[in-house]
Amino acid sequence: MRSDYVTDAPLASELLDFIESQRDKKGNLIAILHKAQEVYGYVPWDLAEKLSEELQVPLAKIYGVLTFYHYFKLNKPGKSTISVCMGTACYLQGAPELIDELSRILGIGVGETSADGEFSIESVRCVGCCGLAPVVTVDEDTFGKLSAGQLAEILGRYRAAHAEAEERMVAAGAGSAGATAEVNHG
């Protein structure tokens, strides 16, 4: 589970602990930004501001690094992230058509999040199972040998799962978006 980023809340203790452990390591900025993204799922502008203060590093430098590396997300990702492999093998087996179809269904392009906050689309390079090309991963699941026609059904499944998870949250009466987030290293 990720922590929700809330502007007025203090930084998650997990992130602060990590910063502490990195305090006197040289060149720690990228590692800290990785951690921030791991905790919150993205690194919004005002989080960068807070980090600038916390680390005593100029904001310009933090923003420079954040925008240089594709991996860092500045906008909040959807509940599920759809990553279309655009490695060579997948490209040749029709990955561009998958992206077109996803864009058509969700009304967004690569790097964007759907208006309802359900999905975001990413393009990634070879995920290492070219034998399955074209490959799409949704969160932790991999789908291989996909055709555009299968996408709507797959998205439907995740929509249903999101709704179910929400219901369970409500039923448990827990809005506990606690300050501690579980580390998920893959």
Partner: peptide
């Protein structure tokens, strides 16, 4: 116990 010391750190790339 050779007297030689060396350690390794992992640095994560970020998609560039």
């Amino acid at each position: 116990e050779s007297g030689f010391s060396f350690d390794i750190e992992i640095r994560l790339g970020a998609g560039a």
